[in-house]
Amino acid sequence: MNGSLNANHLLFLAQGALWTVGLSLIALVGGGALGFAIALCRVSGLRAVRLASGAYVQLIQGTPLLVIMFLTYFGLPPLGFSVSPLAAAGASLTIYVGAYLGEIWRGAIQSVPRPQWEAAEGLALSRTQRMAKVILPQAVRIATPPTVGFMVQIVKNTSLASVVGFVELARAGQIINNALFEPFLIYAIIAVAYFALCFPLSRLSQRLERRSGRGRTTLMPA
C-alpha cells in the first residue's frame, strides 16, 4: 500500500464503514436490550432494584467509553479472559449504550402522565398489563425521536473501537494514512463517510420529533 489513493484503498475504507455500521447495530441491539431492562428496573416497585440500576447508570455515565474499552480489551486478559477486538468493542458499547438508552427510556416511561397509571389501575389491570398495554406503547412514541438522535452518538462512538485494534472506519483511515501519508485527504474522506451515516439519522430524528408534537401522543390535562 503505497503511492496514491486507489480503488483498493477506497474498498478497504468501505469495508471499514461496513464494520462501523455493524458495530453500531451490535451496540443498538445489545444496548437496546440492556437499556430496556435498565429502564424497567429504574421504575421498579422494588427500592433495591431501583437503586442498583440507578447506580449502574451513574457509574457508566461517569466513565469515558474509551476507558470501558481499555478495561474490557486490556483489563480482562490478565484475569484469564481473552477477548477479541470485536467482542471487546461490542461489549463495551453495549454496556455504555445500555446506560444511556436506559435513562432516555426511563424518562419516557415516567413522562406518561400519572393519571394514565391510575386509570389502568382502576380497571384492575396487573402491573405487567399496565406496563405492556398502557404505559409502554405511549412511552415508545415519546422515546422514539431521542432514541434515533442518540443513534447518531452511537455511530460516532464506534470510532473509539479503533483503540483496541478493531478495524472500523476510523481505524481503516489510520491504516491507509500510515501507508500514503495524506492525512487531510484521507481524514476528510472519513469525515464525509461518518457524516453520510449520521445525517440521515439526524434528519429522521428531527422528523419524528416534529411528528410527535401533534396527533395521538397529545397528552390529557392532568
Binding site: P115, Q116, A119, G122, Q138, T217, T218, M220, P221, A222
Partner: peptide, 11 residues
C-alpha cells in the same frame, strides 16, 4: 372509577 380528566388511553 371515573376521573375528572377522563384518562382514556390515547393510543
Amino acid at each position: 372509577i371515573v376521573f375528572q380528566s377522563y384518562n382514556l388511553f390515547p393510543h
